[in-house]
Design a protein around this nucleic acid. Structure first.
Lengths: 341, 341
DNA sequence: CTGAAAGCGCTTACAG
DNA sequence: CTGAAAGCGCTTACAG
């Protein structure tokens, strides 16, 4: 009644072959007759043999696990990143261990250390704002912005912003309010800069940062967008969908019709952005591609590092650092009304 | 220049003690003089000694890692679950390996198998709709609804629904539309049933399911809520915040003022629910508590299982299966207007 | 109070 | 083409 999972030596004994032969058959490494290999694989299956990761990890020095460090879930984009990273990593034969860099500023370093302690082969990090990613001997892939030091791969946030701006210009908007959340965010700044790069001096452009307004009036306070509208601003371009949602509902509540009287745009194409009324014009990142490039780069770095040992791992670089974004035009953006207050 | 991370035997040699003593000092297990233990720990720190998980796992048969299986990210509640599970698990000394049960129906079983293959000590599952969680010898904690077979712990969705209904009744609403997404969801059904349980025959209550409407009119179609409003329905109670958002923006777009002319409620208290205009009345789950109970139960089961080996692990039950929810009243709900069409 | 030794399950040169 | 043996780093009885 020994139904517990067999190990390699039990499997080998059962088959009357050596343990090495069994191992070779399953890994397809050493040369052995195809028939024997076949027979071994079948029996392994049938006996429910599952190789021990621990044994393998101890022997090979590789855990087959990658770490993923994400900041607090505040940004609803992270689940999508996590999902894509998990999908690609699984496809490459890796598991994904998650860690959270929430709380204090040192949490990111702590999270990284914990992952290293658990023996991950490499780490993907979406850095917290205003932090430095420490150097380790464990390869690290960074997803932030093209300008971030040691950045591995990211969406082309600048170009995404530029696309929004061209769209608004084409619709005839001349007074445009850019709405950011936190000026210390690399991603948000790059998006804003991208927008500004495509807006001409003939247009009036202002930027507001929500954290600064909330610092004065409290969290969740009104952004007074109706007042901006009254001053002739007809386009409200936000750095992410949740802020666009906040803007859109605030304008709607004030009785301003979207898109007839004001245009609102977001960023990130979150699930609900296509389901609200009116559906939100936004910018979609190519997450599957970003995840693929990040994991590819990481896996390559892991293999390289096996050769040259010791020393901190050099920055991991992807084949392509910047992945294009796609403007998704929906009904929340429309032609500028006659821009009268 | 041997700066690479030392292992236990190098540490022991460096200290002139046996490898067993070093191990005992670090784990605090075997009895040894406090001074020696102290000295060993200090030197270990100073030499940057990091114990090998692989070695430990191989020896102890425990990986110190839990698996977390979540369905597709469609439900924006999952990130919060993931975050809390990760937090609690880390606190209990476990890492968290994520897996996704997206795609086809068998994906959930596949995800579980992969985690087992990676040697996790236990698994937390939020089951996909309409699937059976397979029995394994690996302990599994299920987070779904109190009625789900083998459910370990969950929010009290029924009572959450009841709280919403009492709130609406107290506000004087007599014609109430319940808005669900998918009738095959245990969670959504329980919430709807909870609402119905507290609505009297004196009230008119109807339920619509978004997937059914979309099956006819296409994804993202209008829900025609203005028509319901015209028929005198003044309260729109949704099974989750994204659906409430859809309802709220649809009503606002149709020129119906919230909450003056219609009340909208959601479920789950997602981040943005407090930032929209008007902010959303919703129901908040006690995720930290749910995560704590789930992990506690799992860890207990893992320890128990070490005693009795083999055989599928019995269902993991938490000290408390059902965690209360909290109604969060915000401005999207208000007194019923004179309910004239 | 401390140490020598076995063994967890695997892979990988190496010998035959 | 196949097998015997070493060893990855740890913990845990056990002996002293």
């Amino acid at each position: 009644m020994k139904a517990a999972r067999p190990n390699l030596s039990e499997l080998a004994r059962h088959l009357g072959v050596s343990i090495a032969t069994a191992s070779n058959a399953l890994s397809g490494k050493g040369r052995l007759s195809p028939e024997l290999a076949q027979r071994i694989r079948e029996t392994a299956n049938q006996m429910g043999y599952v190789p021990s990761q621990a044994g393998r990890a101890l022997r090979t020095g590789r855990s087959g696990v990658l770490g993923l460090v994400l900041p607090d879930i505040g940004n609803p984009l992270y689940p999508e990143i996590a999902q894509e990273i998990e999908r690609v990593a699984t496809g490459a034969g890796y598991g994904v261990l998650i860690a959270n860099s929430r709380d204090d500023i040192s949490a990111q370093d702590k999270a990284i250390f914990q992952l290293v302690e658990r023996g991950v082969d490499g780490i993907v990090i979406v850095p917290r704002r205003g932090t430095k990613v420490p150097e380790t001997r464990c390869p690290i892939a960074i997803i932030d912005t093209p300008k971030t030091p040691r950045n591995t791969v990211s969406g082309d946030h600048f170009d995404g912003g530029a696309q929004v701006a061209r769209h608004l210009t084409a619709l005839g908007h001349t007074r445009i309010l850019l709405i950011g959340d936190d000026p210390s965010s690399n991603v948000q700044n790059t998006r804003i800069n991208g927008m500004r790069s495509e807006l001409s001096d003939a247009q009036t452009v202002e930027t507001i940062w929500i954290v600064e307004i909330e610092a004065k009036h409290g969290k969740g306070c009104a952004l007074d967008l109706a007042a901006w509208r009254a001053r002739g601003f007809t386009a409200f371009a936000c750095v992410s969908d949740p802020h666009a949602l906040r803007a859109l509902t605030e304008l709607q509540s004030a009785g301003i019709a979207i898109p007839a009287e004001a245009t609102v745009t977001g960023f990130d194409n979150l699930q609900w952005s296509s389901f609200i009324s009116p559906p939100l014009t936004t910018v979609k990142m190519n997450m599957p591609e970003i995840a693929r490039l990040a994991i590819d780069a990481l896996v390559t770095a892991i293999k390289d590092r096996d050769a040259s040992d010791d020393t901190p791992s050099p920055p991991v670089t992807a084949r392509k650092a910047s992945v294009p974004m796609e403007l998704v035009i929906r009904r929340s953006s429309g032609p500028a009304p006659e821009a009268q207050p």
